[in-house]
Amino acid sequence: MDIVGNGFLARSLRPLAGRHPDVVALAAGVSWASGTSEADFAREATLLRDTAKQCLADGRRLLFFSTAATGMYGLAEGPGREDVPVTPCTAYGAHKLGLEELLRDSGADHLILRLGHLVGPGQPDHQLLPSLVRQLREGEVRVHRGAARDLIDVRDVVAVIDRLLGLGLRSGTVNVASGCAMPVTEIVDRLRAGLGLRAAYRFQEAGGQHVISIEKLRALVPYVESLSFGPGYHRRILADFTRTVVPGREAAADVTKGVL
C-alpha cells in the first residue's frame, strides 16, 4: 500500500504499508468538519482527481476516506446506511459526498470508507476528543443537546481496513464505525472523571441522536464481532484515550458555572 498523507490517519495506516501493493490510500486532505475554507475543499478535490487519474492509469485501487459522522447522516431517518440516498447537513458532509461522486465517475477502481469518530493517541487538536479535553481544561464544554457520537479505536479501524482490502473489492462504499452512538454528555463525563477535571456544560439546541449502520461491514468482515462494539467498548477506548493525555496546567472551573 502506498499512503498519501502524513497526518493522524496516515500514520495509523503505516503497519499496512507492506501489504496490499495494488492499493493507494488517500489519507490526506480535509479532516476538520468546521471552519474549513472553500480553498481547502478545492485542494482536496484536485488531489483526489489527480490520484484517481494515476490509479486508473496504473490499474491500482484507490482507498478513499469519507465520513459517516453527523455531517453526512445527521438528517437520516434511522441508522445511516450506505445504500440509500443521503442529504448532508453540513458543508463538510456535502463536500465529502461530492468527492465520493467524483471518485465513482473517475473510472478508477476504488473503495470508499465512511468513518466514524476515530480515537487514538496523537490526534490533531480539532478532532472530537482533543477538542473536548481542551474545553474541559478551559472550564466550560459546549454540547448540542441530545447529541451522540460513534467512537471507534483507530487500531480497530486499521484491522478492519486490512480485512476489507483483502476481499479484493473494486468498488463500493462501506461504513466503518462501532454502530453504537454514545451520548456526548457521557463522553464528557468520562473524560472529566478520567482526567480529574471540573467543568460546566453549555447546552446548545442543535443536536440530535445519530446512529451509523454497520450491517454491511458485519456481513463483509465477520472479525467485527470480536471487537465487542457497544457501551463497554466505548468505555474502554475512552479510558485508553485519557491515559494518553498529557496533564494540563489549567485551573479547574467551578462545576456549577454557566450550566444551562
Rank of each mutant, 00 (worst) to 15 (best):
D105H: 06
A252D: 12
L13V: 08
A253N: 09
R145P: 04
G194K: 07
A69E: 10
A27I: 03
V133K: 08
G208I: 02
S131T: 15
L62F: 04
E100W: 00
R249C: 09
W32G: 15
Y73W: 04
A177D: 05
E215Y: 02
R60N: 10
S178W: 08
T70D: 09
R163A: 15
L128E: 15
A177F: 07
A25G: 13
H210M: 04
R19H: 13
Q54S: 15
S31K: 01
V84Y: 02
V174K: 09
M1S: 13
V84S: 10
R192F: 02
T242P: 15
F65Y: 15
L227V: 02
A239N: 14
H110N: 14
A206F: 06
P130S: 14
R149Y: 05
C89K: 02
E225V: 03
D125R: 14
A200I: 01
L151F: 05
V221W: 03
V224E: 08
Y201N: 08
R49A: 00
A159S: 10
A42G: 04
N6C: 11
L217W: 09
Y73L: 12
V224K: 08
K216E: 15
D125M: 05
I212P: 02
G258M: 06
E100T: 00
F8C: 03
F41C: 01
V184P: 12
A27F: 02
P15D: 10
D22L: 12
A239T: 13
D50T: 00
Q135H: 05
R114H: 01
P247Y: 07
E225P: 05
L132N: 07
A177M: 06
A147I: 07
H126T: 02
S178K: 06
P79R: 04
G258N: 15
N6G: 15
V174F: 03
A147Y: 10
S34P: 02
V119K: 14
P124H: 06
H95S: 05
A181K: 04
D2P: 05
L191S: 07
G207R: 09
V255Q: 07
L118S: 12
G196F: 01
A28H: 06
T90M: 08
V176W: 08
L238A: 13
M72P: 01
F229W: 10
Q127D: 05
G258L: 08
F65M: 01
Y223R: 09
Q123G: 14
L238C: 12
F229T: 07
V23R: 08
G168C: 11
R236T: 14
T87I: 03
D162E: 13
E44Y: 00
S131W: 13
G232A: 07
Y201E: 03
L191I: 11
L167K: 14
P121T: 11
V188A: 11
G258A: 15
L195E: 02
T256G: 08
G196H: 01
S228V: 04
M72Q: 04
W32D: 13
Y223T: 01
D150A: 04
R134Q: 13
Y201W: 11
L102R: 00
S131I: 03
A91F: 07
A147G: 12
F241W: 15
Y233K: 07
A200H: 05
S106L: 01
G18V: 06
C180F: 15
A193N: 07
M72S: 04
G166H: 09
A52D: 00
R43W: 00
F41S: 02
V221I: 12
R198Q: 12
